[in-house]
């Protein structure tokens, strides 16, 4: 690296920063759109030109969580005054909160879908990453007969778009009663991610010098202990990177979730657009659902960002 920058270099640097800023803004625009829409009053959501300045409100989030129906008659002032703040927000939108026979508030379909997404994505990620790590370790450290063929076979499972097998999978799942079950989706997503996880983890584990484990073996540990005490901590970066990718894939998956689930195990991605079609679409509620759906991935990626960065450049430099 040059110790002293020339004027030309400085200008170039500034230009680079400006262009990066522009590109970042282009990428962030849709996210801004969703976030801002999720805080808009309903009547401002679809204005042309778009409303930029508005008083943010939380009513889209309240509506997202609650089961609602159209108001046939306006609530009496007493009813309105007695209602809690969130129910008033629903009244203001010309709707009322649906209650069951005992007067308990009914939740909308969103919270359970969101929970399903979390269950399916987390469990399938843990399974894919752990199985992938073990498999990769085996391929990396031991002589496996036909190693290249096996690895190619594992990779080949990703060579055709998953949609191609959607119908056969659906029929198989119907036969085994796995349709609309958590376990069904978990198996499916684990299988999707496994090949990716094996290949990525193999790259990481190959980079960990064998001597570390040999040292641990000589130090009096079994191979399994050496794996858990030495290889796993060393592979933490790779595991984090792999986990982020697997989680995002499982979290975002739409097609199989749409085909394989209806209600009990339905995840958020097929649910959110299904709300567009029923009655007049309330874009603010859809935006609120999308915004909340973005959060787990964003948080997960943010927490692991250091590992992710290191993971991306891993193996690029010979130590």
């Amino acid at each position: 690296m040059a110790a002293v920058q020339t004027t030309g270099e400085r200008t170039l640097n500034k230009l680079a920063i400006v262009s990066v800023l522009i590109v970042t803004m282009i990428f962030l625009a849709p996210i801004y759109w969703i976030v801002s829409t999720s805080f808009k009053p309903r009547n401002l959501a679809t204005t042309v030109p778009p409303t930029i300045v508005f008083t943010p409100e939380v009513s889209p989030f309240v509506k997202l969580m609650l089961k609602r129906s159209q108001l046939r008659e306006q609530p009496t002032p007493e009813e309105y005054a007695a209602a809690p703040w969130w129910e008033r927000l629903v009244f203001d939108g010309g709707e009322k909160v649906v209650r069951d026979g005992k007067g308990e508030v009914q939740l909308s379909g969103y919270p359970s879908r969101f929970l399903n997404s979390l269950i399916v994505a987390i469990i399938s990620t843990v399974l894919a990453v752990s199985m992938g790590t073990f498999t990769a370790y085996g391929f990396s450290r031991f002589k496996v007969k036909g190693e290249d063929d096996w690895l190619f076979f594992i990779l080949s499972t990703r060579m055709l778009p998953p949609v191609v097998v959607a119908i056969p999978m659906f029929l198989m799942y119907r036969t085994f009663g796995l349709n609309d079950t958590h376990i069904g989706l978990i198996i499916l997503y684990t299988a999707f991610n496994l090949s990716f996880s094996v290949w990525l983890m193999k790259g990481f584990i190959d980079e960990i010098p064998k001597e570390y484990e040999e040292a641990a073996l000589v130090d009096g540990y079994t191979r399994m202990e050496a794996f858990f005490k030495i290889v796993l901590p060393e592979a933490a970066t790779g595991i984090a990177a792999t986990a982020v990718f697997c989680f995002i894939t499982a979290w975002n998956e739409y097609v199989f979730a749409l085909i394989m689930t209806r209600r009990d195990a339905q995840t958020a991605p097929p649910f959110i657009p299904s709300q567009v079609g029923s009655g007049l679409p309330d874009w603010t509620v859809i935006a609120a659902g999308t915004f909340l759906f973005l959060l787990p991935v964003a948080i997960f990626t943010f927490l692991l960002r250091r590992h992710l960065l290191r993971g991306m450049s891993f193996g690029a430099i010979r130590k």
């Binding site: 010098p209 001597e211 570390y212 040999e214 040292a215 641990a216 000589v218 130090d219 030495i230 901590p233 060393e234 933490a236």
Partner: peptide, 12 residues
Amino acid sequence: AMVFQSFSLYPH
């Protein structure tokens, strides 16, 4: 006990 050429100290 063994001492390796690469030292093999556990980095973590």
